[in-house]
Amino acid sequence: MEKVPMTAEGFTALEAEIKHLKTVERPRIIKLIAEARAHGDLSENAEYHAAKDLQGLTEARMADLEDKLSRADIIDVSKLKGDQVMFGATVTLVDEDTDDKVKYRIVGETEASVKDGKISITSPIARALLGKRKKDVVEVSTPGGGKSYEIVKVEFK
């Protein structure tokens, strides 16, 4: 089994999601199924089938999350330091074409969220950044074409 790298924060978030699914969503769905079953003929009961589909999706999501947690390789970012980009680093970049600054934290796939400034270690930009240092320039292939970024800060927090 392949280990899944993640931060302690990401591990805690997955645990919280599983707890929510088990303690809130699962009972809610069971109630929906029971209510729909009370309407009678199940073969033409859209509410019943929708609730059963939702139950299947929820159970699959829980199984997926539990699998990821069981294979988690928790990396304590607070113990990392240095000037080289690696898992857990928060990297500030400047787009060489527009001078726009962006800040990304390199995290595991399960915790990636671009809107929160977290990019997956397997993303093209993270792969281009790994091993680089402050003042290095990296070329990244994006769907809109190539981009050049200068690394202006590498930090671990």
Rank of each mutant, 00 (worst) to 15 (best):
I74R: 08
S123T: 09
I119V: 14
M62H: 06
K157Y: 07
A46I: 03
V154E: 05
D97L: 07
R105H: 01
D73S: 00
G40C: 13
T98S: 14
S141P: 06
V154Q: 11
T12N: 14
S70F: 01
L69K: 07
E17P: 00
K132L: 03
V137A: 04
L93K: 10
S120I: 04
M86V: 01
K135Q: 04
G117V: 10
L80W: 05
V85S: 13
G40F: 12
K79G: 13
D100I: 01
I121G: 10
G144Y: 08
S120C: 10
Y48I: 03
A36F: 06
G117R: 05
V107F: 00
K118Y: 05
K118M: 10
D83W: 02
L32I: 03
H20I: 04
F11P: 00
L42E: 15
A8P: 05
R105N: 11
P27T: 15
D99R: 05
D99T: 04
I29R: 02
E9Q: 07
A36G: 14
S148E: 07
D100G: 03
S120A: 09
R28N: 14
D95H: 10
V107C: 08
L54G: 03
A38T: 01
R28D: 13
D97E: 10
G40N: 12
E35F: 03
R28Y: 09
S78Q: 08
